[in-house]
Design a protein around this nucleic acid. Structure first.
Length: 559
RNA sequence: GCCCCCGUGGCGCAAUGGAUAGCGCAACGGCCUUCUAAUCCGUGGGUUGCAGGUUCGAGUCCUGCCGGGGGCGCCA
């Protein structure tokens, strides 16, 4: 019996109580009830707080209400015992057979185990990283890469239709500055004011000159553009290659330039005209503004500056409309804490174009991440030219450990990573702890195969999984779909990692329990209990592999 | 000044309003002829920043304060 099934059993019990008049609920019985794994041993297999939540509505006290539910539940199939504890919790013990059956169900579901339909029908765009193509990706981008990719993965697992999108800011002042910086480096001139520094600029300039020797002889102006475009292409390619290596794959790379292209449907120009028609724009001091204060922003925002240049916000508005026009009913933006000032204007902008931002827009603000080596912070400074790049991080830490280490913390938690700690190849490193547990299931299954054991099919006797540790493991495995669904709904993929650590721990404890051996010992024959436990190991392998897969981390068969 | 995030053992962090607040590191002590010891078992370590409030129940929600980070440009 899964938690969801148990929830249904409890709902049925409540319905029966209402039907026979034992209790009166003004709103009727709830359609689902909360069922959780108690933290404390001795509180049963599952606990529910329905009595605490419904007693007042039913005009009685929690314990009296609980008594009625208890009697009803005890008569239900698959329930072994029900206790009332504390203020009115119902602690439920499930029959071993009903519970053990879950293991076989997990094996049958296979790679699909953990997926659900809770977000079915939703079309979601997840935009993340969106770095300028003017430099290498660094530590901050790395965190958003992991979070964005994982949010996309859990949303998909929950049934949503998802597109991962990278918005390329390939237009405007920064690009020109980038071109000028490359040009200066190639010509041996000093870097322009506020220009790009760092060794990578000189390296890039050298590559460009090697590929296009004639570039330095181009006329002034033309030369800058040539450097800009060549640098753009190289830098973008590098970002794309590195993200591919990092197991983060985008569906759409959207160029800001497209939004300004002549004849592009939904261009910035058209967008502004549309907003003007709706009366959300006004002119002041020679600039064109959007009246975002009508929708809760701190101040109105400029779209066209006095000098005639469009602001990024103008592009952002057209881009948002473009996403909506492509059919996304939900747009997720993943921004760094240094961009949180954007939230107000994005929401107001969505309202200006006629949307309800609470429904269509989800701006997630990720907190900053620091990284330490030998007790010292590796500082990111473009000015000083010292940048902790994604490439360096992958080289030094490895893709699995790097992804996992960033995946196991919530986005709004400021984070300090220690390189020594996350690269340590031992059990105290969570990524290897989980991977090791998976590898262990693989070895066990291989050993079982060598002994001629195979999955029992219809002969599976779930009631043989009757040890306390068996039950703990089955219940841990049974949580997986709920964890994935909540990770999707809350946009909190770190829950997957935490869950896997917990489950790996339960599995390891089970493994070390003599009474729960899967393989027959010595010359013992293979008994039905051995086969039942083989099912359990298969189910564990399924959950660990599916969970690691959701994190984009490999699930090795041997370590 | 205003806005956002954070404050939980020495350190890094979990905990969807539930019961006795967990995990890893660091410290100390145990178990390998038996399915992988990268596992497991045990010991010590906490007034969840402070003060109120809501609730049957608060680390979690509300108010105020203290401390840290970030943001408040016709820059990105």
């Amino acid at each position: 019996m899964t938690p969801d099934q148990l929830s249904s059993v409890i709902v049925a019990a409540l319905e029966a109580l209402v039907a026979d008049g034992s209790v009166t609920l003004p709103d009727g019985p709830p359609s689902t009830v909360t069922v959780e794994r108690p933290r404390q041993k001795g509180h049963g297999d599952y606990a529910t707080n329905v009595a605490l939540q419904l007693a007042k509505k039913a005009g009685t006290n929690p314990r009296a209400f609980a008594e009625l539910v208890k009697a009803q539940l005890e008569a239900s199939d698959g329930i072994a015992a029900v206790d009332i504890a504390g203020p009115g919790f119902l602690n439920i013990t499930v029959e071993a057979g009903a519970q053990g059956q879950v293991a076989a169900d997990i094996v049958a579901a296979g790679v699909a185990y953990g997926t659900s339909e809770v977000l079915a029908g939703q079309s979601i765009n997840v935009e993340f990283i969106s770095a300028n193509p003017t430099g290498p990706l660094h530590l901050g981008h790395t965190r958003w890469a992991v979070l964005g990719d994982l949010i996309a993965r859990v949303l998909q697992a929950a049934g949503a239709s998802v597109v991962r999108e990278f918005y390329i800011n390939d237009r405007g002042n920064q690009m020109d500055l980038f071109g000028a910086s490359l040009e200066a480096a190639a010509l041996g001139r000093p870097t322009p004011e506020d220009g790009y520094q760092g060794g990578y600029v000189a390296d890039l300039a050298a590559v460009i000159v090697a590929e296009q020797p004639g570039i330095v002889d181009l006329p002034e102006g033309e030369r800058l553009v040539a450097f800009r475009e060549a640098g753009y292409a190289l830098q973008l390619k590098q970002q794309q290659d590195q993200l591919d290596s990092f197991n983060t794959h985008f569906d759409v790379w959207f160029s800001e330039r497209e939004l300004h292209a002549e004849g592009f449907e939904g261009s910035v120009e058209e967008t502004l005209q549309g907003l003007k028609d709706k009366g959300h724009l006004f002119e002041q001091d020679g600039a064109l503004w959007m009246r975002t204060t009508d929708f809760g922003d701190d101040k109105d925002r400029v779209l066209i500056r006095t000098n005639g240049e469009l602001t990024y916000f103008a592009s952002d508005t057209a881009y948002y409309l473009n996403k909506r026009a492509r059919g996304f009913d939900h747009c997720i933006y993943l921004l760094g804490a240094d961009h949180h000032g954007y939230v107000g204007r994005l929401r107001a902008m969505a309202a200006c174009v006629g949307d309800d931002p609470a429904r269509t827009l989800d701006v997630m603000i990720g907190q900053l991440v620091k990284i330490m080596r030998d007790g010292e912070e590796l500082r990111l400074s473009k000015r000083a030219g010292t940048i902790v790049t994604l490439n360096e991080l992958m080289d030094e830490i490895g893709v699995d450990a790097l992804r996992y280490s960033l995946a196991r913390y919530p986005a709004d938690s400021p984070l300090t990573l220690d390189i020594a700690e996350i690269t340590k190849a031992s059990h105290d490193n969570p990524v290897y702890y989980v991977q090791y547990a998976h590898a262990r299931t693989c070895r066990m299954i291989a050993n079982a195969t060598d002994l001629g054991m195979s999955l029992p099919g219809d002969d599976f006797d779930a009631a043989l999984l009757d040890h306390e540790r068996d039950g703990e493991l089955v219940r841990a495995l049974a949580e997986f779909p709920r964890v994935v669904a909540s990770a999707a709904e809350l946009r909190e993929p770190h829950r997957i990692a935490r869950y896997l650590e917990d489950t790996a721990s339960v599995f390891n404890k089970w493994y070390d329990t003599k009474e729960c051996r899967m393989l027959p010992q010595g010359d013992d024959p293979v008994r039905p209990a051995n086969l039942a436990r083989l099912v359990l190991v298969h189910a564990t392998q399924t959950v660990l592999a599916n969970g690691l897969g959701l994190l984009g981390v490999s699930a090795p068969e041997r370590m």
